[in-house]
Design a protein around this nucleic acid. Structure first.
Lengths: 205, 205
DNA sequence: TCGTGCCTTTACCAAATGGTAAAATTTGCC
DNA sequence: GGCAAATTTTACCATTTGGTAAAGGCACGA
């Protein structure tokens, strides 16, 4: 057996770790790191607290594991941005993918938002090592599109920020959106149409 | 003395209540409601914990008081939106005021964001009684502007959401913005220019 | 200056919470 | 079936935390 390689986890391990992480995502995204308790996570996972601690070294490890897993999912839509595609279509596609994620993965969006809101205490390294290089790379791609006149000229960094802000808003500020739209079921489609218009008008040369 | 009217608080009362609220704003905005402790607030305020509880009935009352005070400040820029002003100028002015607030009152922005993120458990009534009517009113104003052709036709509700999202992003996601812009000191001006362009292109008929 | 009422501190407490030790149970393999 | 290893439970523990009781200090008007 190769050195330093752990043997594959048993079926029970896999199932229980997944259960715990899913429960923890629920609880952490609802109450924040400090607001979440191991008892809540344990109950949501259908396991006892000591049993939770058999699978994870502690509350923090659960949180960090969640954040690590999330990073990949979260960056995926940006990774997909294709330098060889049609610029406007690529951007609008990115906006739509981000908006769909806000609808389909609101817990993940809120977990991420909560972590950043509190200064990214457990995520700062990931931001620098994972997000920053990708951000710089895609900014350069967008800049190149603008330089060859395929998109209107704006600051690519703020462009990306505004895409993140507008799309994630629907997940992170859901409580507010629901009150103001009175639970409008067509909210997502309306937001999609609006954002497509917004970025089309901004970027059409 | 009129019935049910409390006599005006002493100078000491005023000073200490203000100190406590300022300290609490610091602590709550940094760590969230559950993450904040009375001990932290007490230390930041330069008072003992029981002394804090002499001025407020408990942790929750401090938080609610803060939220109540914040509501007024927070809605003010929207209140100012003038139905008789020049439509585009009014909207762009609103964007700028919100962005300035994100720079000047980041603690308030994060306190608000944290509360909404967790489902507005202590603020839902205020949203319905304070924000919702104002939101509806200003949506109607914007709608009227669009109907008479002074602004391009988009959904006013999503327009307002996108203004909130893009401006508050710089306060709420500061930790991320700082990493990605590498602490760029000119960030605020850059954001201002970008957002003015964004909403001008969207709304110019 | 003296007492009354406002303010502050000291010394506590009960509940909640993250975590542990070790016994008991179950699982998977021969 | 039987046994070793993996899993789960029971019974705890130390710390943190929101909150209280009551005594002490202080300011200020009579």
């Amino acid at each position: 057996m190769p050195d330093g390689v752990e043997k594959k986890p048993s079926r029970i391990q896999q199932r229980n770790r997944r259960r715990i992480l899913d429960a923890a995502l629920d609880v952490f995204s609802k109450h924040g790191y400090r607001g979440a308790t191991l008892d809540q996570i344990a109950e949501a996972a259908g396991l006892s607290k000591p049993n939770i601690l058999y699978y994870f070294d502690g509350k923090e490890e659960i949180h960090v594991t969640l954040l690590n897993q999330l990073m990949e999912t979260w960056l995926d839509p940006l990774v997909t941005l294709d330098p060889d595609g049609d610029p406007l279509r690529e951007i609008l596609g990115y906006v739509q993918r981000k908006l769909d994620m806000a609808r389909d993965l609101p817990r993940e969006s809120r977990l991420f938002a909560g972590e950043i809101l509190q200064g990214a205490p457990r995520m700062a390294p990931h931001l620098v090592s994972g997000l920053q290089p990708l951000f710089d790379e895609k900014c350069a791609v967008i800049k190149a599109w603008m330089d060859r006149g395929a998109l209107a000229d704006v600051d690519p960094r703020h462009l990306i920020f505004s895409i993140w802000a507008t799309t994630q808003h629907y997940a992170d500020f859901d409580a507010q959106v629901r009150v103001l739209l009175r639970e409008d079921a067509r909210c997502h489609d309306g937001a999609g149409q609006y954002l497509q218009t917004l970025f089309t008008r901004l970027l059409t040369p």
